[in-house]
Amino acid sequence: MKKMTYAEGIREAMRFKMREDPNVILFGEDVGKFGGCFGVSAGLWEEFGDERIRDTPISEGAIVGAAVGSAACGIKPIAEIMFIDFITVGMDQLVNQAAKMRYMFGGEINLPMVVRVPAGAGIGAAAQHSQSLEAWLTHVPGLKVVYPSNAQDAYGLLLTSIDDQNPVVFIENKVLYSMQNDVDENELKPIPLGKARIAREGTDVTIITYGRQVYDSLEAAEILAKDGISAEVIDLRTLYPLDKETIFSSVEKTHKVVLVSEECKRGAYTGEIAAMIAEERFYECDAPIKRIGALNTPIPFATDLERYVVPNARDIELAVKSLF
């Protein structure tokens, strides 16, 4: 076991793939000598140079477009968008181009590209730098959406994402960047997309979550255990493809479901999962399916307001208890 931060997990995965495959390149705003807004690519420019680690102008449309065009011509770009909020500026290229090309052209063109996007609240960055837009991205057929919660998964999932022949949006939680996790060095290897992880086993209720809320859910599970409720926590790791099998087998065991994400609750991806469980495992549930999300507001600036809007362990604990 060794200690590794989430940011290091991402960086080392990029370094590994770039050493292995000369066709892997990284570009985005300030990813070069500056090392990226959150320091994720620090040191890569020194190793790989100007041609493979490219600073771009502040042109998100061109960043995603350059990924689409270069991937279509046979290289493997990693494009960093500084904040997920800025993907709105490059959304045509992501939604109308990247996600559609393979299908629209009858399967003739593959796009082995990764768009890395830091997401989430928690650093006082306010409404335009704190969003969680998973629902938009998972809604679009043709995109894969990955959202790791720890260094080990970030490393393994990014290795797989870079090799994937489809456009992958790799969502990174900015609060987790500096969080250190224990990493099993023997297990630093590709993790297949679409395989969830049971973060904690339990028998009474299934908490389905991902990203930063994995930690809140684990904290809630610890408290619930003291009150005699055994909660199973599923870390989805990949939002699409979705690991229905792991979800369903847990639901069949616990018969109660709480879904947790940091998205504002209205229209959140957790709603899709709730609907899927209701549609396909309705008779396995012996209580309403609960969803925990952020309040339906933009993310506010002031620390107390931000904490109020974003869900936490207490919200999860209360939601679970309401089912018993």
């Binding site: 066709n23 390149i25 041609e51 493979r52 449309g61 061109a62 995603v64 477009g65 350059a66 990924a67 689409v68 065009g69 270069s70 991937a71 279509a72 011509c73 046979g74 290289i75 770009p77 045509d92 290229q93 109308n96 181009q97 090309m101 629209m104 052209f105 063109i109």
Partner: peptide, 25 residues
């Protein structure tokens, strides 16, 4: 042929990406 395109102005940046791939190779 990297595709006809239904979005006006979408080809510009795809062409840039194509140029990037060429330059890289």
């Amino acid at each position: 042929i990297l595709g006809a395109n239904g979005i006006v102005g979408a080809g510009h940046n795809i062409a840039v990406g194509s140029g990037l791939a060429i330059q890289h190779r």
